[in-house]
Design a protein around this nucleic acid. Structure first.
Lengths: 343, 343
DNA sequence: AACTTGATTGAAAGCGCTTTTATTATTTGA
DNA sequence: TCAAATAATAAAAGCGCTTTCAATCAAGTT
């Protein structure tokens, strides 16, 4: 068995409570005893037991992470490791650890969260996604358990602390940019419509077109949580239209890469024949051929701010609801060009 | 305060110890009382407190994860999310949770591990990398704390349970494949030489060349933990040689993508002018232009087996040292072709 | 009828820490 | 000089659970 507070107490000739106070650096202990106790701790190689501490304090200094269930989403998209790093650094600064729920199905994830929360395993929870309808979020909200979401809550947006980009505006800007380049037939390729981020980006795109006095065409909008598969036919159909789009807004770099490949196979050249702009600006965007013009959403900060604000909320339950908007920026590369007006 | 075992006991009119036994489904409790207690639990919405349980049991059912410090390595390489998923599923099956250390520098990570271990936060540790010299690994080994490493330990390989591919063999096979295609000038582009995986792959490459009776040329071997930057010049130099290589073994898909781009810029065509084969076979490999021939190392399984074997070791300390080799497979795509013999 | 025995359940101690409350030693004030 | 205030430390209770050990009771033995 490891060395405990009692062992230290015995060696230092003080009571366990005194040792505890020395650990907490309580000012009511004289410097002399502190010194003595610290020496004893060093001599024995004492390390406080976190579990015992958690039990006594009713707090664990652990934050729970809820990842999207969809395996491929998580494991292929560089978004997650990056946001994780942001979270991790934010947590580490304040000496918090991160714990993940694990589970495949929606139901398993929910169960995992309940265990974390009711089992007292974590002090707060970070949701790394925002769905249109989410059992987990509802549960946390009902229970008034401290949590933040990375993304924009679909409902009760004003009542839930969240960290997000202004995806609506970003999508508008992106579309405006294409409009400025002279494009009028602009398509949208989005992901899972159950994800709020997809919805927001779609709305921004539509708004920009409407503001420009253009009609929205349903056939220009494709939705699919596709990476390679399904996507191919979708693109095919899109390009087969009598008036195919000359530019595309794609909701995610990874998807854009898929689109790029499909177009390449179809011998459609980017940006000469069609311009592409996408979101997230992960390393891939820079490494594709042609390099993608993409919206940098500052993924790291998204995570970092989420961790920080959750910790604040955990340590001060009175902390007000917050909405933190992380700025974005269009990074122009080589996938967009002026529309050649030959029609 | 949440509902505790005492509340349940009171409502069910039994002793707390009985409730505890019902939770553990102890056979010494009659079905009748079990029923009664379970009803009380349901009525109160009881959830056992994990922390208290951990303290009493001296076990947390949490596995600690140690990620490589280098931020970019982790956050850009799809290897990690995938291995994480494997770990996560393996852990979930046995009802274990995953906790991450966080920390930037080597020293911070080490401190984090010590806290996890000595603080009793975790029952076992998974190292997600293997370095040539690693303080963390030494520490765990000395302390005889249960751990497994994903990768091959550099030292004490026989004394440490690990899950790995046979990277040496894979590299040999890959090189042989290029030799069979008629290539004789084969370069190697590897990552950080402090990582054992790099070393293994390099050795395999060298062995294959030697076995084929070819000389090893130092100028054909490039090492750099490069993604874009530095790499570009390295490739440039390589191709500037009087006898530039006609094929490249690249230690990682992401790197290969960088190489591909650089070559594209230099107007060197793959595979016509130079063949490329790389490792890991992440989604990217399939999505690059041309699609990369790559060694599928079964990343998911790497993680999955690591979790399983660690849990076994945790639950049965007598469990023998194991070395689990995950099979690999060359996935042939379009980045390699026969050498045109015109020289 | 007294005595085991086996099956259930309860009481209590303990996991390692924090914190409230009590105790002792040391000053201080008049 | 002695009570009162202050500082420093110790003792004990409690966090929510598990588990050992003791207690009870019905059933089987002799």
């Amino acid at each position: 068995m490891a060395v405990t507070i009692k062992d230290v107490a015995k060696l230092a000739n003080v009571a366990p409570s005194t040792v505890s106070r020395v650990i907490a650096n309580n000012p009511r202990i004289s410097e002399k005893t502190k010194q003595k106790v610290r020496e004893a701790m060093d001599e024995l190689g004492y390390h406080p037991n976190f579990i015992a501490r958690s039990l006594a304090n009713q707090s664990t200094r652990v934050l729970g992470l809820v990842l999207p269930g969809s395996a491929s989403t998580f494991s292929q998209n560089p978004f997650f490791p990056t946001v994780l790093r942001g979270l991790s650094e934010g947590a580490h600064e304040k000496q918090y650890a991160l714990q993940m729920t694990t589970g495949q199905s929606e139901e398993e994830i929910y169960e995992g969260v309940v265990q974390m929360v009711q089992g007292g395993r974590v002090d707060g929870i970070i949701l790394l996604y925002s769905k249109v309808e989410d059992k987990v979020m509802n549960y946390l909200k009902e229970r008034k358990f401290p949590f933040v979401v990375v993304g924009k809550p679909y409902k009760f947006c004003e009542e839930i602390t969240h960290v997000d980009n202004d995806n609506f505006r970003a999508a508008r800007e992106v579309t405006d940019y294409l409009l400025e380049l002279g494009h009028e037939c602009i398509g949208f390729i989005g992901g899972d419509l159950n994800l709020v981020v997809t919805v927001e980006r779609l709305l921004g795109y539509e708004k920009a077109l409407r503001d420009a006095g253009l009609d929205l065409k349903n056939e220009y909008i494709i939705h699919e949580e596709f990476l390679r598969e399904g996507g191919r036919e979708a693109i095919n159909e899109l390009m087969q239209l009598t008036l195919p789009p000359t530019a595309l807004v794609v909701a995610d770099d990874l998807m854009a890469l898929g689109v790029l490949n499909t177009l390449d196979e179809m011998d459609i050249s980017v940006p000469a024949d069609i311009s592409i702009i996408s979101f997230n600006n992960v390393l891939l965007a820079e490494m594709s051929r042609p390099p993608l013009t993409s919206v940098d959403i500052n993924i790291f900060n998204l995570g970092n701010e989420a961790a920080k604000s959750l910790i604040q909320k955990v340590e001060n339950p009175q902390d007000p609801i917050k909405r933190i908007i992380i700025p974005h920026e269009i990074v122009k590369r080589a996938s967009c060009s002026k529309r050649e007006k030959n029609a």
